[in-house]
Each structure stands twice: as structure tokens, then as C-alpha cells.
């Protein structure tokens, strides 16, 4: 299935979803990029699941590279989704990032909720955002809205 089979209202709603998620990723990335004191260390060291793995990521030898990768990935996903370029790859990278965030502090019963507002049981906002990105991965809209539209060899059949 591709978006050509969707009504324009359906396509537009997917574009809106893509822009909202792209907006969120880019803003998170930019804020971290410009805050010199930001570090994922606390989030990783306080992981409530797969502690060994996340503590290793948060260790002194790893944290600088983890911070750089995280900020770069956040911004690239944001740029890809907002600009409409390589959005399938962007969505996949975004899903991986969100699953990392989810697994470090999963909303499993019995585990501490960690630093987030709201109340969750199994499902939290990271998981929902990852699911939304999966929808965007399956139904890419960049040929309808985005730079990719201008890179096509032929005009799309429908808009």
C-alpha cells in the first residue's frame, strides 16, 4: 500500500503527523545541542530495565559518544521528517531511539516510573510515538509533501 491509494485528506493527516513528530525530534535535538550541560548520563544510570547495558552506555568511557549520537540522531530524524527527505530511514532511526528511551525506563508494572509526567501502564508516550513513526514508515508521504517531491523523475499521479 502507498499513499497514492489514500484520499488527500488521509494523506494530509499523515503529513501533519509527520510534521508534528519531526518538530518534536528536532526541537529536542536543538535544545540539547545548545545546552552545554545536557547529558543522557542520569537517564541511563537510573535505568530500571536492562541496567547492565544502559549503565554501560552511561559510563564515563561511553557517555560522550552516546550524547553526540543521540543529539545527532534526534536532529537528523527531525530534519528528515520536517523536510520530507528519506523519511522512511528517518522514521526507522526515530523508532530505534524511542525504543531505547522506552526500554531504559519501561512502563512495566512494579518498576519506578522515572522522570516523566502522567500515569502509564505498559504504554507510555515513547511507545506511542514509536508506533506513530512505524505508521509513517509504512505510509511515507514525502512524495506528497517534502523535498522528495521535487526529486522525482516524473510527477506523481496524484497529489
Amino acid at each position: 500500500m502507498n499513499t497514492n491509494q489514500l484520499t488527500s485528506a488521509q494523506t494530509n493527516s499523515l503529513v501533519v503527523l509527520r510534521l508534528l513528530i519531526g518538530w518534536h525530534f528536532l526541537y529536542e535535538g536543538v535544545i540539547k545541542l545548545y545546552s552545554s550541560s545536557w547529558s543522557a548520563k542520569g537517564y541511563l544510570l537510573s535505568a530500571s530495565f536492562l541496567q547492565g547495558f544502559f549503565r554501560w552506555l552511561g559510563s564515563d568511557s561511553m557517555i560522550t559518544i552516546v550524547n553526540t549520537l543521540n543529539v545527532t540522531a534526534l536532529m537528523l530524524v527531525g530534519i528528515s521528517l520536517l523536510a520530507g527527505f528519506k523519511t522512511r530511514a528517518g522514521a526507522l532511526v526515530g523508532i530505534v531511539l524511542l525504543l531505547f528511551y522506552y526500554l531504559a525506563h519501561p512502563a512495566f508494572p512494579g518498576l519506578p516510573q522515572g522522570p516523566s509526567e502522567g500515569s502509564y501502564w505498559l504504554v507510555n508516550k515513547n511507545l506511542i510515538e514509536a508506533a506513530a513513526l512505524y505508521v509513517l514508515f509504512l505510509l511515507p508521504t514525502e512524495s506528497a509533501f517534502g523535498i522528495a517531491k521535487l526529486m522525482q523523475r516524473s510527477r506523481p499521479q496524484t497529489a
Partner: peptide, 23 residues
């Protein structure tokens, strides 16, 4: 087509600017 191709870029610039200026 041009509009739909490039309309994401001002949003991108706006979000970047907002984040940078807030920080």
C-alpha cells in the same frame, strides 16, 4: 508542487531558531 516540496523547510528553520534562541 514547489510549495509542497519546500514548505517543510521554513518549519524546520523556525523550530531550530526557537530551540537555539530559547537555549
Amino acid at each position: 508542487d514547489w510549495l509542497k516540496g519546500l514548505a517543510g523547510l521554513p518549519i524546520l528553520g523556525g523550530v531550530w531558531y526557537a530551540g537555539a534562541s530559547f537555549s
